[in-house]
Amino acid sequence: MHDLLPVIAAGIVSGSAYALLALGIVIIFRSTDTVNFAIGDMATLGVYIAVTAIGFGVPVAGGLLIAIVVAGGTGVLTERFLIRPLGAGHKSLFIALVVTIGLGLVIHAALGAIWGHRPTTIPAIIPGTASVFGVALTWNKIVATGIALAAMALVAWFFRFTPMGVAMRASAEDHFAARIVGINPGRIAAIAWFLGCGLAAIAAFFLAMDTSVNANLTLAALFRAFAGVFLGGLTSMPGAAIGGFAIGILDNLAGRYLSANYRDTIVFAVIVAVLFVRPSGFLGAGRKERV
């Protein structure tokens, strides 16, 4: 067990991407009852545009910002023009999900058509590697994890202390009561979608930096993020973040101690087991769906 620490460290590093995606999914679900299946494709779109900008000489940090803004903006437009017209009500819950599936297909196809299928890369922010708990990690990964953690801390601060953040929590709890104290539901939805997709863009950006920019950039990470969401519950923000990290660690533990071949199997087995044992996740607020 002497190498447990490095495996956990590696798990936290890869888990930070899952946690960001999971957090994005949950923030959007809480505000508009929509599971956004296109979140990965929107984030990838942001990364592609960022890479193009970097190609024109924009610094890498500026590229990250561009990715966030593009993905966030796509999210805002999606909510306004595709989700909101569907109306509220539990019957439209699954319909909204299918709409985002459709949108994901469109974005995915467009990425391939516009940028082609030749992978490109993003230059490292800081080249080289460092040793953490005896495991060699690229500086890239360390910086990525740091930024991911900082972004999550910022989100936590936003929801805890700013009036808008408090208003968003209020709105998630009771749409009607939020409306009558003067909170604009459209603005809440827009901010949630911007935040959710923006966080996903951070994850996608670092995934791209790690490997390469391609249209299926977030696919594997997104399934793990969903596993994290199931662990934590669709309605809990801390649950999503913790769930994402937990999946990252589990994934690495399974790969190290069981079988690298069966990593995915184990992750999916966990999802199914959790759903059957506790459909609302371990930190979720029950099977809450508005009627």
Binding site: P163, V166, A167, R169, A170, E173, D174, F176, A177, A178, I180, V181, G182, I183
Partner: peptide
């Protein structure tokens, strides 16, 4: 009543003067 049950007393009141 429709209070925001999960929010604190302070937060509930502050939301009354939202904006």
């Amino acid at each position: 009543r429709r209070l925001f049950g999960q929010l604190t007393v302070d937060e509930n009141l502050m939301l009354g003067a939202y904006g």
